[in-house]
Design a protein around this nucleic acid. Structure first.
Lengths: 340, 340
DNA sequence: AAATCAGATGTTAGCGGTAACCTCCTCGCT
DNA sequence: AGCGAGGAGGTTACCGCTAACATCTGATTT
C-alpha cells in the first residue's frame, strides 16, 4: 500500500526499477529471460516498495485457482478430523490450496449453503467427506459443475470414491476374535446411516458366518463413549450374556464407554470378556486394559483422494473406487477364550 | 463452460437475456434497481447456461477477498485441532473464508514457506495458532504486511492476543486440590517452550505457594500419553513419593498415561493418589476412574480471535489481550486426602 | 406543452496480473 | 560488409467482474 491506500502493483515496481511491468512479471515468475543485473534492480525495487503479487489477479489471468474444496459434514470426531488434515497436507504437497468448509448439521439448507460457499470460492474440484447417507442426493448439483471425489462415504456410483476398507476392517476383527477362540461375539455398531458403520458390521458378520459362527447380539450406538456405556449396561442384562466372550465396538470411543460399564459392574476385561475397538486413537494404547483396535491409514486415504482429484482436473478419468486396507493392532483387551 | 472450453461469463448471460452485463451483475448482487421481469429473464438465462459468477474476478474488482489465513503450527492434538475448527466456523459466521495452513514441523524453512503460502493467497488478515516460542520472531515479516492476531501463544507485545486463561486454569487445579485437603502435589507439565504449559504450571504453583504449600516434584512431558506413563513410573521411584497425595497432569493424554503407570504398579486412583488433567477431551469422563479436568472454551476463544481480527480489518484497533476463563470439571479421579 | 425527475439500463474504465506478439540490439558467420 | 539468430525487453490485449457515470424512458409537475 502507498500513502493513499492504493496497493503496490507491478507497475509501481516497474516504474521504480525503470523497466516494463512485464519484466517485473518475468522476475516474479523466475523467467530465465532476464539479465541478472535487471533481476537485481527489480528485486530491490520490490523489497523497497514492499511489493506482494496479487494472487487474485494472477488467478484471474491464468484462469486457474489451484485450490480444492474440502467439505466435511461432521464435528470433531477423530476420524473425520484426521481426514481433513491429511487432505489439506496432501493438497499442499500437490500445489493446491485446500478450501475447508465444515458443517456440523446436515439439514438440507445447511448442505446447500455449504455447497454454495465452496463453489463461490472458485475451487477447481471438491473432495466431500460425507460419511452419512442422505448427502448423496444433495451433492448432485455439485457434480454437474466440477470434478468431485467422495471420501469415506459413497456419493453415488458415478463418483470416484476413496476410503478405508471398513469391510476388511470388520473381517480383521472377526478373524482375530475367532483366532482367539471366541465363538459368541456381540457388537456395538455405529449409526446405521453411516456407510462406514454398516461396512464394519457387514465385514465382521460375514467373516463370522463364514466360520460357522452366529453373529451375537448387536447394539446401535452413535460413536460416543456414552453410547458404548449404555450398550454395555444392556449387554449385561441380555439373556445370552453368559455366552458372550467378546465385544466388537465400532470405534474406540464406544469401546471406552463399554469398558467403563463393564468395569463398573465388576466384569473384568479381558478376563471375563474381550473388547476390541476401531480407530486406534492416540489414547487407545494407554487405556486399562490397552485396547486392541483397527488402525486406518488416513494419510494414505487423503493422499489418494487428492491424487484422484488432481488427475481428474488434468483430464484423466478417476478410477471408480479405491479402498485402503486397515491393519489390526493387537493389544491386551482381547485374550484367549477359556471355555467355561 | 461452453463447448470449446470457454467459461460462461456475465456477457454470455447478458447476450442470452438481451441485457447488458451490468444488469446481470445487478441481478447477481440483488440490486433493487432492476425490474422484476428483467430479473426473471436474467435468472432464467443464468440457469439455462449454467452460469456461476467468478469469485476471483469479483475479488479483483472489489479489491477484497474476504478471507482470513489461519496458520497452525502443530499436529492433530486435541486443543489446536479444536481451535482450528472453531476459528473456521467463526470466520464463516462473519462472512469470511478461512484459509487453513498447518505445518507440523517448526524449522525456520517450514515456517517461512507456510507464511509465503498464506500471504500468497491474498488473505486480509491472519490468525496464528502458535503455542510454542520461537515462532514469534519468524512471524515478524507477516506483521508488517497485514493484521495479525495470535491465538493460544503470544507473538510479541504488540500483537493482539486471544487465549484460554491457562494461569487461571492452573490456579483452579491447585485450588481444587487444596480444597480436597492435598498438601503435596506433583506435576507433569507440558513442554517448557509452550507458553500454555508454562502458564498452567505457573498458575498452579502460585496458588499453592499462596496457600503456604510447597509445589511438589515436577516432570516435563510432551503432551503424549507415553510421557505421562514415564513420568508415572519415575514418580513411583521418587524419594518423596510417600508424601505425594495428588498429581496434576497438564493435559488429559498425559493424565491417561500417568494413570496407566499407576494402575500397572498397583497404585489406586484416587484412593492412594488423586489425578487431575486438563482439556476435558470427550473421552475423559469415561476413563477409569472418570478424570477430573479443566475445560477450555475453544469456541469462545475462536470467536473472539476472529472478532478481533475483523475489527482490525475494519480499522478498529485490537485490544491488546483477551483471556477466556476455563472451568473446572470435577469427576472421580480426585478424592479427599486422608492423612496417613 | 415544456421542464423535471426518478427508475431502469447501458457504457466505459479500471482491478493486477499473464500471454502473445513485436522490436531492438548484439554477436557470429559467410 | 551483410545477414540471420537469439537474447532481452516492451506493447497490447485480454481474464471476468464492479464502480461510476451517462443515457433513455415515461410519468409528473407547472
Amino acid at each position: 500500500m502507498d500513502g493513499r491506500g492504493r496497493r503496490t502493483t507491478m507497475y509501481d515496481v516497474a516504474a521504480a526499477a525503470g523497466v516494463s511491468h512485464q519484466t517485473v512479471s518475468r522476475v516474479v515468475n523466475g523467467s530465465p529471460q532476464v539479465r541478472p543485473e535487471t533481476v537485481e534492480r527489480v528485486r530491490s525495487a520490490m523489497t523497497r516498495l514492499g511489493y506482494r503479487p496479487s494472487g487474485t489477479a494472477r488467478n484471474l489471468a491464468v484462469r486457474r485457482t489451484r485450490s480444492l474444496g474440502v467439505v466435511s459434514f461432521m464435528g470433531p470426531l477423530f476420524g473425520p478430523m484426521s481426514m481433513l488434515l491429511s487432505i489439506e497436507a496432501a493438497a499442499r504437497r500437490s500445489g493446491y490450496a485446500a478450501q475447508i468448509v465444515s458443517a456440523h448439521g446436515l439439514d438440507a439448507g445447511q448442505v446447500d449453503a455449504v455447497l454454495e460457499e465452496v463453489l463461490g470460492r472458485d475451487v477447481e474440484g471438491v473432495a466431500v467427506i460425507a460419511p452419512t447417507d442422505g448427502q448423496a442426493r444433495m451433492v448432485d448439483g455439485l457434480r454437474a459443475q466440477l470434478p468431485v471425489v467422495a471420501v469415506e462415504g459413497r456419493l453415488g456410483d458415478d463418483v470416484p470414491f476413496v476410503a478405508s476398507d471398513n469391510e476388511a476392517g470388520g473381517r480383521l476383527v472377526a478373524e482375530h476374535l475367532l483366532d482367539c477362540g471366541h465363538r459368541t461375539v456381540a457388537h456395538v455398531s455405529g449409526p446405521t446411516d453411516w456407510g462406514e458403520a454398516r461396512q464394519r458390521t457387514a465385514g465382521w458378520a460375514d467373516r463370522l458366518v463364514a466360520a460357522g459362527v452366529q453373529p451375537g447380539p448387536v447394539w446401535v450406538g452413535d460413536w460416543s463413549p456414552e453410547a458404548g456405556y449404555r450398550a454395555g449396561l444392556e449387554l449385561l442384562e441380555h439373556p445370552r450374556w453368559e455366552e458372550v466372550g467378546a465385544v466388537f465396538a465400532a470405534n474406540d470411543s464406544m469401546a471406552l464407554g463399554l469398558m467403563a460399564a463393564l468395569h463398573r459392574s465388576g466384569v473384568e476385561v479381558p478376563a471375563r470378556v474381550s473388547v476390541i475397538g476401531y480407530d486406534n486413537t492416540p489414547e487407545s494404547g494407554w487405556l486399562q486394559p490397552a485396547l486392541s483396535t483397527v488402525e486406518q491409514q488416513f494419510d494414505a486415504v487423503g493422499a489418494a483422494a487428492v491424487e484422484r482429484l488432481v488427475s481428474l482436473l488434468e483430464g484423466g478419468d478417476g478410477a471408480a473406487e479405491l479402498l485402503i486396507p486397515p491393519r489390526l493392532v493387537s493389544r491386551s483387551s482381547v485374550s484367549w477364550h477359556r471355555r467355561r
